[in-house]
Amino acid sequence: MNVIECSGLTKVYGSRKAVNDLSFTIAENKITGLIGRNGAGKTTLLKIIAGYYRKSAGKITVFSKNPFNNIQVAEKLIFVDDRMSFPPALALSEILSSAAAFYPHWNKRIADGLLNYFQLEPKEKHQYLSKGMASTFNMIIGLASRCPLTIYDEPTTGMDAAVRKDFYRALLKDYIEQPRTIILSSHLLNEIEDLLEDVLLLRGGSKELQLPIAELKHYAVGLSGREEAFAEFINDVDILHQKQMGNVKYIVVRNNFSESLQKRIGMSGVEMTPVATDDVCVYLTAGNKGGIDDVFHRSE
């Protein structure tokens, strides 16, 4: 069953299309990573899913319903980001017990345990927390609420590396205990790739690709060698990225070489290396094949 179905989804701000003709589906009980650069439309998309924003065009259903202002959708999802706001009169422990009233699957054991583990003072007020602490607290709510659809928008903002690691581990453990649909947006894929099953990559408000993480690992391949050595192989492939280092050239291409071709490449002295998923995403969403280096080469 698909939790989210969306086709031709568009959100317009003035003349800018934050989300542009986007079509995808997200299946039940999967952890999907929503990856994209700043301004790729991740947050806008997530807020449309959460029913906060109204779509401008296209179709979107969440649990088979239009999510905007819909109580039946709102009941089944929680949206966690660093701008979650809570009344200033409530202490952290009071916020947790209030949240418990809203979510039927609320897990008090996890909530209290995590609060204690991350050394958050129950009597502390949310607005006095540091950015990282606030993110940690919001994450606790996201985990403990055990909503059928849990959305984390850049959940690790401000967290230090150790807390981020703990968070990912907690997320995974909790997911195994109680599987549910989770969307995790981030611009850093490498930290979360072990967690994800699917990746949805956005670029400029449109879908660049949506793949299982396993396939993404083999999506592209890096070739390095002297330029004339691999000229013959790259006539009809997409070059995702290229870089010149002295007389050695490094290019990243879509990995759709046949086995025989791969063998020929190996023999021609061109080195073939896997490309990290993170880098693939960066190359796919870059505005320019040469990356930042191009800017400096030109100015020289």
Binding site: P87, P88, A89, A91, E94, K125
Partner: peptide, 9 residues
């Protein structure tokens, strides 16, 4: 008064 604690209240 918006930040009053439960005890103070």
């Amino acid at each position: 008064t918006k930040k009053i604690t439960s005890k103070g209240f």
